[in-house]
Design a protein around this nucleic acid. Structure first.
Length: 372
DNA sequence: CGGATTGATATG
DNA sequence: CATATCAATCCG
């Protein structure tokens, strides 16, 4: 038997193995129970600490400390921080899937740009989590139009700010006639104010107002549209503050406008309310840093007169003439004047004649190219 | 200025 | 094949 084999057989000796085995098991058992005991002790200590902490958090009367314990897993997030864009700022309402409010500052200079809404598309705001965002499909065939809060017309300075204004975070479901009519004229009035005031601040947003029903009680009732359930506001609000050359506030006015068609018989002043009324309805302090004592009533000072029917029709016939790209289209728009018994002013006549020549030339050119 | 709708085309 | 995208047309 070689030394190596003897060495190996020694380890195979049952006696030796038994001795080693019992010794090993004994040691292992001891250390196992030691481990379990230590664990148990530290567990108890942790339990004691946790219990103590809960006690202290409550009993020392520090509500913040207590709150931090209560909110161990974080506070519910409403995602309602202020969002900043090129030319407006807003707070988004994840529950209603519309803005809560949109703020703007408009000036004559910023309105001068040439950005075109034809290059912009309504789409979800990439900054809003998808699960809280509205989609175009929500509005499609809903019976409601996509109404800008910061209007596209206030964002002509560059294409980027106009494109941002088409984010659905800046949009609410709005009655189409209201949007294209009364509200449109109100937006025009805001822009018109920049001719006189160097800076005009505007705050706009949706409202959900209670209404009395047959049972004599009042309810807030509103439609929700599309898969995402975008909330249709019962009213819209707009707050206007005009400033002088020094940037000092001069006058302001607050309006609450029903989200329904409003014809030319109605005056803007019918919808003027004290700012406090709006604050009560919407549950927000509006323009908290404005000293209301020193500013006048915009409607007393400026009249708050919107365009009348004739002015309005002539205005957008002018816009349509300007954007006409065929002679056929030009004449069709020109024909609207007669249909609506409107007299074109000199500006409109000149515009028509200028476009007539311009489009005549281009069409002559294209037909010649076609022949060639 | 403010919008919708439709039909053709591109795309995965 | 179903779904985006765009251009054209229309309306107040």
């Amino acid at each position: 038997m070689s030394a190596k084999a003897r060495f190996a057989s020694y380890f195979r000796n049952p006696i030796f193995l038994r001795g080693f085995g019992y010794g090993g098991i004994f040691t292992a058992t001891l250390s196992f129970y030691g481990f379990v005991f230590d664990n148990w002790r530290s567990q108890k200590k942790k339990e004691k600490d946790a219990e103590e902490q809960l006690k202290i958090a409550f009993e020392d009367g520090d509500k913040v400390t207590r709150g931090q314990s209560i909110l161990k897993y974080g506070s519910p997030e409403m995602g309602n921080g202020v969002r900043y864009y090129s030319n407006f700022a807003l707070v988004y309402d994840q529950q209603k899937r519309t803005p809560a409010w949109v703020a703007e500052q408009i000036t004559a200079n910023l309105l001068k740009g040439t950005a075109n809404r034809k290059h912009s598309k309504f789409k979800p705001d990439p900054g809003v989590p998808e699960m809280f965002s509205a989609e175009n499909s929500d509005y499609w065939k809903s019976g409601w139009s996509r109404g800008h809060m910061a209007p596209a017309g206030d964002n002509k300075y560059n294409q980027e700010s106009m494109n941002e204004s088409f984010y659905l975070s800046n949009v609410v479901p709005q009655n189409l006639d209201n949007n294209a009519g009364f509200w449109n004229r109100l937006e025009m009035y805001c822009r018109d104010l920049t001719k006189k005031y160097p800076s005009v601040h505007v705050l706009s947003g949706p409202l959900f107002m209670p209404k009395g029903e047959e049972d004599g009680k009042r309810y807030v009732k509103y439609q929700v549209i599309g898969q995402n359930g975008v909330a249709v506001p019962t009213h819209l609000f707009k707050v206007i503050v005009v400033e002088d050359k020094l940037g000092e506030p001069v006058a302001m006015a607050t309006f609450i406008v029903p989200n329904e068609p409003i014809n030319f018989d109605h005056k803007l002043t019918e919808y003027q309310v004290p700012m406090e009324t709006l604050e009560g309805v919407v549950g927000m302090k509006i323009i908290p840093k404005l000293d209301r004592q020193i500013v006048g009533d915009l409607c007393e000072i400026e009249g708050c007169k919107l365009m009348d029917r004739t002015e309005f029709e002539l205005y957008f016939i002018g816009r349509k003439l300007g954007s006409a790209n065929t002679l056929h289209r030009l004449d069709k728009v020109w024909g609207e004047l007669e249909e609506k018994k409107l007299q074109p002013d000199q500006y409109l006549k000149d515009l028509y004649n200028r476009k007539l020549v311009e489009l005549g030339k281009t069409e002559e050119k294209t037909t010649q190219e076609g022949v060639r």
